[in-house]
């Protein structure tokens, strides 16, 4: 891994107008934007479709950024079901989640382990992954951060070094609290499980209920994540008004809100309104856990 280096995408070249906003907007289901776009054997869009998906999604990203004032670095397109561009959205999560460095070791579910992929493609991909891992000299991001904290302590007096080390290790033990939000059926559960390689289940009791559910989920990369599942918006004005009180109470205490939107949805009015509200609720840093 990490064999190649590349400049950050052009979206990072533009200063983020909302750098402290703990929000990532995911445009899911990009595989459904075009007909006959997907090469099932390789589990990738065809070359022509990839360009068209990119063009359409970049247009949507620009529109959402323009109409909500949220920085474009908070918005990413992907397909949870096809496990396409999961690493792209994971980077947004690590960047914008408060304490998101704790998610730096996460590896999304591999794209080749999806039904329909040619067995030869799967074998070739896994062999290439193993070859790259063996050739890599890099370690885990979390161990690199441990080294940084130790190195920084040398430049501080004993009291400050102790405070830094203590606060860092306390933070590392605290599971990130991530709320997932979106209209019904947009793929919130699939997104979470593909992105964090988890087996998060919204139980039969929880499905369709109108209250928030919080559950700690083990991360295969180590540690846990605290997932907050919220009732979806956009079904009726009465329900939205009732849910908004819950959102306002719960979301400001979360480290990140992951808002999932259907990429091919033409009418984004409800989602745009929600992003504007989230921008207001999530602008301050979360209170420190006791």
């Amino acid at each position: 891994m990490f064999a190649k280096t590349k400049a950050r995408s052009t979206r990072e070249a533009v200063p983020d107008p909302t750098p402290n906003l703990r929000l990532v907007v995911g445009l899911n289901r990009v595989d459904e934007i075009l007909h006959d776009a997907w090469d099932v054997r390789l589990n990738q869009p065809t070359e022509a479709a990839a360009l068209e998906i990119r063009r359409k999604c970049e247009d949507t990203v620009k529109r959402l950024a323009r109409e909500t004032g949220v920085g474009a670095s908070h918005i990413e397109y992907y397909s949870a079901l096809k496990r396409y561009r999961l690493h792209n959205i994971l980077n947004r999560v690590v960047l914008h989640c408060f304490g998101g460095f704790k998610l730096g070791d996460v590896e999304p579910k591999p794209f080749e382990d999806v039904a329909g992929v040619d067995p030869d493609v799967r074998r070739f991909t896994q062999e290439e992954r193993a070859r790259r891992a063996a050739a890599s000299s890099g370690g885990k991001p979390s161990s690199a951060l441990e080294r940084v904290v130790a190195e920084m302590s040398r430049f501080l007096d004993a009291e400050d070094a102790g405070r830094l080390t203590s606060k860092f290790h306390t933070e590392m033990r605290r599971p990130p609290r991530v709320a997932v939000l979106g209209q019904s059926g947009v793929g919130k559960t699939t997104t979470v499980n593909a992105l964090f390689a988890t087996d998060w289940k919204t139980s039969a009791v929880e499905v369709g209920t109108h209250t928030a559910q919080e559950k700690r989920v083990a991360l295969p990369s180590g540690g846990e994540i605290s997932m907050v599942d919220l009732p979806g918006y956009g079904r009726s004005l009465d329900e939205d008004a009732a849910y908004e009180a819950q959102y306002r109470e719960i979301l400001p205490r979360c480290d990140l809100v992951l808002l999932v939107i259907q990429a091919d949805r033409g009418d984004l009015a409800d989602d745009i309104e929600m992003i504007r509200k989230l921008s207001l609720w999530l602008s301050a840093e979360p209170a420190e856990a006791q």
Partner: peptide
């Protein structure tokens, strides 16, 4: 896989930015 490797490298930078903000 190259794209995934590039994203994994970019995650180092994201982790650093996140740590600095924290």
């Amino acid at each position: 896989l190259d794209m995934i490797d590039n994203m994994a490298f970019e995650r180092i930078t994201s982790s650093q930015d996140s740590f600095e903000r924290w």
